[in-house]
Design a protein around this nucleic acid. Structure first.
Lengths: 348, 348
DNA sequence: CCCGGAGCTGCAAAGGTTTGCAGCGAAGTA
DNA sequence: TACTTCGCTGCAAACCTTTGCAGCTCCGGG
């Protein structure tokens, strides 16, 4: 029932190949012919069949975006940015949610591989070697993780953690905890490394707690542990955890920031809405989404993926750039000077 | 380079049609042959080409999901549920974000129509007639809106609004405001109708304010208006607005719930994290996503869409069910008894 | 012994589009 | 005038899979 290229050809008195060219290579057809064809196409409500096009060109004009948990408010701005950028280049985005499960992640990426031109792996939980294997099957850009040999866009959470720790040191804190994130998270390792270095440099003490789920519940559940550890400040894996932790501490009778200071990471919209407003490390989430799409689509004139077309000898300069986006510290109300009494010295 | 059905056929010594059947109609092929074919396919890493399959069957095994704003925390749980349900039935989901723009919405649905088997229109902002037109091009299930003749899944916000108003009446409030949502929102109209009826029935007064954007900013911006209106309780269009409003009122020196009571709608995760915790109308978001997918895929054995296949005379029983999901009131801390001094009588 | 059916497999057309190649006329060059 | 070039168009193969039909073998019944 839907109009095909053939119907348009018949209606406008030209060959189907001319109609095809009208859409995919307009400069090759006579302007007069072109307007006629376009008019007929419009009339008949013709829309190119993407399956047929994909079949022959080998390119679907779709990209896959795999995230750990779409309900985590960190991701939607990234998804939104990626989607906008993709649409802008005439691509569409498949979003898939792995529920923080590495196995689901692998299955999904395979299921998607056949029907997209590339995949954005966002905060992947699977191993580097698995990612490399996947990248041989389909072009991949990794977000929030460093994998050598693959294009990556990262946010400098190391720097962010350092800034956060320095902020806490300046407020007089000497016993600081790092709330660990999920196992397998690159961000987690980076934060730990940087926070460790920064505390050492400041002559302070870093206690690492975790791993914990990157959720509000995960943060809340760690409250008791935090209390017992006797620290006066906590750097959480992300804002959600930080918010949950504040709730949890509150239930334990510890006030933020009077008794304990808390810093989050991500600067999700929510962090401005809680009381106290959250001091946090802002990550350029939207920029990351846009950049990743650009990197993936950089070579989209290269012709069919894995096709028997003329070799890509010249086009094979996949630069595999690795981009590190800067973060910054946003100081709000959840951090304050170390409590004078020093709750770490019960008798003092 | 990727293995095709032909390679598998050659490797296993059968005709391509047998390979095809091994995957799409296994019961038609001899068990021995089947295992041999499957083994070869596995060996060669064969994966069916979805474009080719789509070309001939007319079904892509993809569905589109169009939402107003993916960054609105109302949507992710719905998306997640829809995606899971779809995956469960071997479908994938395209998510598209319209930025609350009816024009973008229409463009998107058309762009998507050709490459999906159906579209979920979630909280659409476009007109009913446009939706009907779209539904002639591609199967549609509408979420959060009632369109006669089309399958819809709605959440009973009317009932929710009534419950909320009755709750406020029971607390002694007599001057109540309804914060309107975006123009074109069905939810908005339903709430207005139900809230109006409930206040009238309770001998109280309803002031309608708006329209306002369904965001935190939208709520915050309405704070001044709320103060001037002299009401003691507000029913917001959604939780985001409610939270923004609470912030805004706070900035104006009005405390919630001591001076003004506020009720939201949606029960997003966030509403449990703010202070005060939000009293709100809980909507069954995930259930809506699952139900919508089921309704869309109900007839997925019907054969090619818009094809010249045997007529769907018998299969044409698209029941076009309209499902109304129940809502419930969750009372938390943002509502309380009407202030004794009655701030509506400045001198009293 | 013949016929019919069941179970399985092969054959070939079809689906809508892209694209290298060839053909055509007109314009430009020698 | 003859030859080349250029701009445009038509031709037909190719992409990979599905599916109606026909054919084959094997078995059981009459």
């Amino acid at each position: 029932m839907p109009a095909t290229i053939r119907d348009v050809a018949r209606a406008s008195g030209v060959h189907i190949s001319t109609v095809s060219r009208t859409f995919s290579a307009p400069h090759l057809v006579n302007p007069e012919t072109r307007v006629r064809v376009l008019a007929c196409a419009e009339d008949l409500g013709y829309r190119p069949n993407r399956a047929a096009r994909a079949l022959i060109t080998g390119r679907t004009h779709n990209i896959g975006l795999i995230v750990a948990d779409i309900a985590n408010p960190f991701f939607p701005p990234l998804i939104k940015a990626a989607e906008g950028q993709a649409r802008h280049r005439d691509y569409h985005v498949f979003v898939a949610d792995t529920n923080e499960d590495p196995v689901a992640e692998e299955e999904l990426v395979h299921a998607l591989a056949k029907q997209v031109d590339g995949v954005l792996l966002c905060s992947p939980r699977m191993s580097n070697s698995l990612i490399e294997q996947v990248s041989r099957e389909v072009p991949v850009v990794v977000i929030n993780r460093q994998v050598t040999g693959l294009p990556c866009v990262m946010m400098d959470v190391g720097q962010g953690a350092r800034l956060a720790v320095e902020h806490l040191l300046a407020l007089g804190h000497r016993r600081i905890a790092l709330l660990g994130g999920p196992r397998g998270s690159w961000t987690n390792r980076e934060m730990r490394r940087a926070a460790g270095a920064a505390t050492r440099a400041g002559g302070a003490d870093l206690t690492v707690l975790g791993p914990n789920p990157p959720t509000e519940t995960g943060g809340g559940a760690a409250a008791e542990q935090v209390r017992r550890s006797g620290v006066t400040a906590v750097l959480a894996y992300n804002d959600l955890q930080a918010i949950g932790l504040i709730e949890g501490l509150d239930a334990l009778g510890l006030r933020v920031p009077a008794d304990v200071s808390v810093v989050g990471v991500d600067d999700i919209a929510l962090s401005r809405l809680t009381r106290p407003k959250l001091t946090t490390v802002a990550t350029p989430t939207a920029a990351a989404g846009r950049t990743a799409v650009d990197m993936l689509l950089q070579h989209d004139s290269e012709g069919p993926r894995g096709a028997r077309g003329r070799s890509a000898a010249a086009g094979d300069r996949r630069t595999t750039a690795q981009v590190m986006l800067q973060t910054e510290l946003v100081v709000r109300d959840s951090t304050g000077p170390v409590p004078p009494s020093g709750r770490d010295a019960p008798g003092a």
